[in-house]
């Protein structure tokens, strides 16, 4: 299948991209890595009149370090995120989650920023970004603004990025030395998550001092399992403690029902897999 016709522009600066977004074309979409957007266009589920390809803006790619923060350009690919020594050392959860996105070919093209702005409820990267308390830098006609991850994901396929804005970078606070695990549950390898659990924990002397737990596809946006996080803090870094704390994982969630499972099953999986993810995170 072939997309419907559209105009195309490939600006080489953020400023030019913002200008392009402000043009009077009827429906404008930003093309990042295209790994979600192009299939949607091919199936003609969307028919934009103008694509603004931000793939040629060099400043949007790359991973750098700023004091207590890792800064990831929005156009950095999943493969580069997964393989980055900086990300692995300071935001291990994100590296692990990026390594599970789709398949190697998609990871070569798909971008962190693109995945976050696409905001698929079953996407692998929003939950780690949420859990790591990242900040998202959004550029618009009036300059840059920064949005906390907790405020970024507004609804299914909807984020804080406005019509005439682009996400430029993701600032991830360093979680150096934290254990991390991304537990993804699928029926076949390249499937979207039926559910997934993103966990990162800090362990001091065998006791969990800080815990962050996020859930994928348990609602229209990624969610924090706050009750689990609270229950884990102060607990010994053991499987039993993890299992006990995880029993509250599905509290307050509203997971979907589809051919892969109903809501009740997803709630059950959330508790089981959260326990496993925490166990794996404290172990590693």
């Amino acid at each position: 299948m072939i997309p419907a016709a559209f105009d195309y522009t490939a600006p080489e600066s953020v400023a030019d991209a913002i200008t392009a977004l402000g043009s009077d074309s009827e429906e404008i979409k930003v093309l990042a890595g295209g790994q979600s957007l192009i299939p949607v266009l091919r199936l003609r589920l969307a028919a934009p009149t103008l694509l603004v390809d931000i793939g040629r803006i060099e400043e949007l790619s790359g991973i750098t370090e700023e004091a207590d923060t890792i800064v990831i350009g929005a156009m950095t690919t999943h493969a580069d995120v997964a393989e980055s020594d900086l990300v692995r050392e300071h935001a291990g959860l994100l590296a692990k989650a990026a390594q599970t996105v789709a398949d190697p070919q998609v990871r070569h093209r798909g971008t962190l920023g693109g995945a976050l702005v696409h905001a698929d409820p079953a996407g692998d990267l929003p939950a780690p970004i949420l859990v790591l308390d990242a900040e998202l830098v959004i550029a618009g006609a009036d300059g840059e603004r920064t949005v906390a991850a907790a405020d970024f994901f507004e609804d299914m396929f909807t984020t804080a990025v406005g019509e005439n804005e682009i996400l430029t970078k993701i600032r991830v606070p360093k979680h150096t030395g934290w254990g991390a695990h991304y537990e993804k549950f699928t029926r076949v390898a390249q499937q979207w998550s039926i559910i997934a659990v993103a966990v990162t924990v800090q362990v001091d002397g065998g006791v969990i001092s800080q815990a962050k737990v996020g859930l994928v596809n348990m609602g229209s946006t990624p969610t924090r399992a706050s009750a689990v996080e609270q229950a884990l803090v102060g607990q010994p870094a053991t499987g039993d403690a993890a299992k006990h704390a995880a029993s509250a994982a599905a509290d307050g969630t509203s997971p979907p029902t589809d051919t892969n499972g109903d809501a009740a099953y997803r709630r059950h999986l959330a508790t089981v897999l959260t326990g496993r993810a925490v166990r794996a995170a404290v172990g590693g």
Partner: peptide, 13 residues
């Protein structure tokens, strides 16, 4: 040099 799915890349890209 990196593998991609050429059905999910625009020629202009």
């Amino acid at each position: 040099g990196a593998s991609v799915k050429s059905c999910t890349v625009l020629a202009v890209q």
